[in-house]
Design a protein around this nucleic acid. Structure first.
Lengths: 136, 136
DNA sequence: CTAGCTGCAAAGCCTTTGCATAAAT
DNA sequence: ATTTATGCAAAGGCTTTGCAGCTAG
C-alpha cells in the first residue's frame, strides 16, 4: 500500500469523494484493474459514481504520471498504480492476468543512441507473454 | 519484400483473391498497418472486399503465426508481417508511428526461471516509447 | 464565488458475429 | 460435391463527449 492519495494532495489535485474513491481502489501492489473493474469497486463505496467520472479520473491520473496504462491486445486497458517503481509485466495470454516483475538491469540501456532512428526515447516497456500457473 | 504469400501457400492455406490482396498489402519491411488501413489499400485493388473479410483474414494470419498484432494504447491494433525475425518496436507517443529495431541480446534471457512466478513464458515484447524525429 | 468536476445519455471507434451466398479444391 | 470463405448489416465492447447542475477551495 503506497501513498497515492498523499502524493495527489501534495500536487494540489482537487479532491472530491469520487476521485478519492478511485485513487483508493487503485492503490496497492500488483493491482492492474480495468476501468470497469475500478468502477465496480468504486460503486461499492460510493453508489452514485458514474462511469464517465471513473474514465475522466483515470485519464487524469495517467496524465499526471501517477498511474500507467497497460494495453493488452484486444481486451480493455488496465491501470497500474505502481508508476514510481520501474517494473515489467508477465501477462497471461489466456486469461489476461498480469503480474509485476522486476529485472536487474536497465532495459533502456539496451538500445544504443545510434540505433534510435532519431527518436527521443522516454521509456521502455517490457512484457513477457505466456501462460499463468492456473492456465498452464 | 519477403515471401509471405509463398509461405502461406506452402502451408496449404486456402487462397482467394481477397486473402491474396490482404497478404500482398501487408507484406514488406517496417509495415505496421491498422485493419482499416489494410482495408483501404486492399480496396484499391479489389473494390468489393469487405471489412469483415479483412478482419477475418488478419485474425487468421495472426493465428498462423505469420503476422504479429501490435497493441498501441487506445488506438487501433496494428499488424506486423515481420513475424519470423525477432525485433522490437520504437513507438511515437504523439503520432503512433512504429519503427522496427533489432537488439543484440535475447531479452528473454533477462527473466530467470525463478522470477517467473510459475508462468510458462512464450515470448517477450520490448517497446521503446518516445517521440519520432518529426514530432520531437 | 467560480473554476472545474460530476452525471446522464448519446455517440464514437474498433471489432466481432450470424447467416445466406459464392467460390476453392 | 463439399468444405470453407465472403459480404452485409447489425450488434457488441470499450471509451469519449456535450451539457446542465453541483461542489470544493
Amino acid at each position: 500500500m503506497s501513498d497515492l492519495l498523499e502524493r495527489l494532495r501534495g500536487r494540489g489535485w482537487r479532491m472530491t469523494s469520487q476521485r478519492r474513491v478511485v485513487a483508493e481502489v487503485l492503490d496497492g501492489d500488483h493491482v492492474h484493474l480495468t476501468a470497469d473493474e475500478v468502477h465496480a469497486r468504486a460503486t461499492q463505496r460510493l453508489p452514485e459514481i458514474s462511469r464517465a467520472t471513473v474514465y475522466n479520473t483515470l485519464g487524469e491520473l495517467v496524465s499526471l504520471g501517477e498511474v500507467l496504462e497497460v494495453a493488452t491486445d484486444g481486451r480493455a486497458k488496465r491501470y497500474d498504480p505502481n508508476a514510481h517503481h520501474p517494473h515489467q509485466h508477465l501477462v497471461c495470454s489466456n486469461c489476461g492476468t498480469i503480474r509485476d516483475v522486476r529485472l536487474s538491469g536497465n532495459p533502456l540501456s539496451n538500445l544504443p543512441a545510434d540505433e534510435r532512428f532519431g527518436f527521443v526515447v522516454a521509456e521502455v516497456e517490457v512484457t513477457y507473454r505466456g501462460l499463468c500457473p492456473d492456465c498452464a
